[in-house]
Design a protein around this nucleic acid. Structure first.
Length: 425
RNA sequence: GUGGGCGUAGCUCAGUUGGUUAGAGCGCCAGGUUGUGGUCCUGGAGGUCGGGGGUUCGAGACCCCUCGUUCACCCCA
């Protein structure tokens, strides 16, 4: 028999971790829906050209795309992120603005995996289209911040910068390229290579040999238009008003070409690994138009599920929920009583599990213990004869005999009223 | 894509300069207790030592290849 395992960079999320993911998504949805964001579910793959708008020079597009030709000869790609898809959706459906949406789901990038970096990785995020107002920038950042707080994270740092408008950015890149080229000899070979492709990325270098040159490099600030500068200052003022701490970093450029003006990143200072950026985002005025839509401003962020959970682990917060069931039915006759009883309990809105394969009472009690059930319902000859159940409180080991017809009333009295998952007919 | 570390039971790991039948703890199953879990005691199941090739009388150990994983670079969430 051949043995199989997950492909590199992918993995199974098993219980109880998957429950933690669901909880994570639920808290996120709750946080952003409270601000008027609606859920959007774009396809997981689409025309590869859509994602090329992220920037031909970016690594994401040039070497990490999971693209292929489908049976109809279409060049499609698994999405490496969702922002481009959301903007494509906007261009396609032309909803009224402001259009505020949130999403969750897997993305794909062909990279070598390491801690906090997978080929299939999940992100949650929001995108807001059609608004220039700097207040929206503040709202977007504040929602991410609020979400981190709800998870219980406290060692998160907000790093922020402005990349200016298209023209500002172009003029700055020119100046930066000139500066770096004139200091080429002082740069590492890797940085010189990066310089060819994208001068902005050189600023991201953490190599010791590049730091001196970077330290005296021109910064974007001097190239910002009056409007972009004003916009940025208003964003910072808004953050201060909401008491959200931030660090300005004029070298924060981020890897995707479409960012304009506000650009930000959330870094976990609790993580030791190199992958300590747990979320990021910014404004991308112009992206919708590049996808064939009307000239529409946009801003959003994406938070990495895996990395954020790693940060939670590092801080010892937001652990996996303990799964448990209300009742565990122990049937030592033939198991068929348990079939009916669990069914009835479930119809009444409570959760119930049982053992199979006719195991011994001791073994079934052990399963009851492991299930985390508050009560064990024991059914043997005596109970059947008297038309009742023995109900054992697993924590106190107190037992009592309860008439069959009083079972739901007993559960309601001890566990509170529940809404039935479906009404018994 | 490049470089380093690591792959032994479901999990965490021992395993001497290469030497008989590969071990422990936890977990799992059963019994001790024919109507009772969590503690305790006893027993049991479970391993082609990641895979393939080589060196050797003999390889879990040494060499080569390969796959996986991990860390760093790169990049990013």
């Amino acid at each position: 028999m051949p043995t199989f395992q997950t492909s590199p960079g992918t993995r199974d999320i098993l219980p109880p971790d998957a429950a933690r993911w669901r909880q994570f998504n639920a808290i996120f949805a709750d946080t952003v829906e409270a601000a008027g964001y609606g859920c959007i579910i774009p396809p997981i793959f689409e025309d590869a050209t859509v994602f090329h708008r992220i920037g031909e020079a970016t690594d994401v597009v040039s070497k990490e795309m999971y693209d292929f030709e489908d049976k109809g000869g279409r060049h499609v790609s698994l999405r490496p992120e969702q922002t481009a898809s959301v903007c494509r959706a906007f261009a396609q459906h032309r909803p009224t603005t402001p259009w505020k949406v949130w999403y969750t789901g897997p993305n794909f990038r062909y990279e070598k995996a390491q801690a906090g970096r997978y080929r299939q990785f999940d992100q949650v995020g929001i995108e807001a289209l059609g608004v220039h107002d700097s207040d929206l920038d503040v709202e977007v950042i504040a929602l991410a911040w609020k979400f981190y707080q709800r998870l219980g994270l406290s060692n998160v740092q907000l790093v922020i910068n402005s990349l200016g408008d298209d023209g500002d950015r172009a003029r700055y890149v020119d100046a930066l390229r000139q500066y770096l080229q004139s200091h080429q000899d002082a740069l590492t070979p890797e940085a010189r290579q990066t310089l060819e492709r994208n001068p902005l990325r050189v600023l991201d270098s953490k190599r010791q040999g590049d730091l001196d040159v970077i330290a005296s490099a021109p910064t974007i600030k001097a190239f910002l238009s009056v409007e972009a500068n004003e916009h940025f200052e208003k964003v910072l003022t808004g953050l201060r008003a909401l008491a959200i701490p931030f660090t300005q970093n004029e070298y924060l450029v981020r890897g995707l070409d479409y960012y304009r003006r506000t650009s930000f990143e959330f870094v976990s200072t609790a993580l030791e690994s190199a992958q300590n950026a747990i979320g990021g985002g910014g404004r991308y005025d112009g992206l919708v138009q590049s996808l064939g839509g009307p000239d529409t401003p946009g801003i959003g962020f994406a938070l990495g599920l895996d990395r954020t959970l790693l940060a939670c682990d590092a801080e010892g917060v937001f652990g996996a929920p303990k799964s448990s069931v209300d009742v565990f039915v122990v049937d030592v006759i033939d198991g068929t009583h348990a079939l009916a009883v669990t069914n009835n309990i479930q119809d009444a809105g409570y959760s119930a599990d049982r053992a199979f394969d006719g195991r011994s009472m001791k073994a079934q009690m052990k399963s009851a213990d492991r299930s985390g059930a508050r009560f064990a319902i024991i059914i043997a000859q005596d109970e059947v004869a008297s038309g009742s159940y023995t109900i054992r409180d697993m924590a106190s080991a107190q037992q009592q005999l309860v008439a069959k017809s009083d079972l739901v009333e007993f559960l309601t009295r001890n566990l509170g009223k529940r809404t039935p998952r479906r009404s018994p007919s």
